[in-house]
Amino acid sequence: MNRFFTPFLRYCRGSAVPGVSGSRAVSLTSLYAILLGLFMLSQSQAVLASETTATTSMNVEQPAAAVAAPQELQQFDSEQQRQLYLKLTAELRCPQCQNQNIADSNAVVAVDMREKTYELVQQGLNRNDVLDYMIDRYGDFVHYQPPVNRVTIWLWLAPVLLLISLFLLQLKRRANQITPKETYPHDSATQKMDTDRDEANKMTESKIQLNKELDQIIEHYRSKKS
């Protein structure tokens, strides 16, 4: 019983489907699927039966005037202003809370800032004007997008540099692998892995095997010479 996952194996014996390894495996998977289903159901009835007309849910135009609509807490002259207001309240940080934007917080200062934002948007100020207004009073802290300066520029530069340097590293590695100094691995483990690979790859496999043997011969010859 010298196996890595002995208990699992015990369940998997006599498996008809070697790929998915055994009835126990299948039942584990289906148990998982059931849990998955239960999760989806947890809030209401059957979910997977998606609604017959999903179309309207994304229809943006709406006959709001058709029904006696209740008063909106914030009434806007245009849809753009509403979107701007929603965007701003999501981007502005409540200065008193742990870590919440002013849209989601009910702290007094968040409510006041929401009202102010609404007022400013109603006055026709654009996004930057409103942000400047708040930053003038509460500092950069109040906006979830940091200002760009000599230091913060690294927020954008560092990831780009990492991306580039990691790709360069790979190019360099590949450039190195052609140098004849190196040999192809021939420890038993790798070879065993090699035989393990997808049958579909056999053609290229044998070709590369040939290359590998050639390399070994060349390497052998060189080491004798030096």
Partner: peptide
Amino acid sequence: LVVLLGTLFPLVHKELGLGSISIGEPF
């Protein structure tokens, strides 16, 4: 790295004496 920077940069920014900033959803 983006997540790490976004999480810790406000701390670094402040400890360097450059003031408080917030990094969140927009970034």
